[in-house]
Amino acid sequence: MPYPVLKEGQQARCRQCRHIVLYRKPNPVNRSVAIAIAGLILSVPAIFLPIMSMKMFSINSTVSLSSAVYALWLNELYFVAVVTCFFCIFAPIGKLVIALILGLQIKMDQIKRNSYMPLIKFYQKIDSWEMLEVFMIGILVSIFKLRADADLFFDLGLVSYILFMLSIVALKLSFDKELLWNKVVIND
């Protein structure tokens, strides 16, 4: 059944529960390609550069996203380490990579039949498991916990982490799954 044709920026709601059924995002393809490229570049410093460092008795220790996951692994919390790694590293990067591939396929007008649909499905699967903004609040909470007892210094990693997180938020706002689905040709 064809959807009512919506213009960019319009939305359609459910008759019964008023939930938004369909929302046409403005300029979705160009924006998500741009955001995906920016996010992928930012992901490297955001994951590996130290987010902040702590100084105490002239000993310096730092934390980055990757070292936090590694520290959990060393503490024998294997489950938590794997889950954190997936939520904060693999899921966001996977989303950006898929958004880039799909956006480029549409922009170049070469939708690859055997990869296009599985990629959208995979994007939808990992979509709800990405938790960068929760980790951001986690950084804030740990800053407050340590602020009184130690000297904290913020590094370039924090800036790139924030920008990385913002690019994921921006992707959420511009990546239009319904539009991607609409490009799938239906053969009866």
């Binding site: 460092s53 730092t62 934390v63 936090a68 996951v69 520290a71 938590v80 740990s142 340590l146």
Partner: peptide, 11 residues
């Protein structure tokens, strides 16, 4: 859980 991850690594 994320706060624990950060603190374990940082402190």
């Amino acid at each position: 859980v994320f706060v624990v991850a950060i603190l374990v690594s940082l402190v």
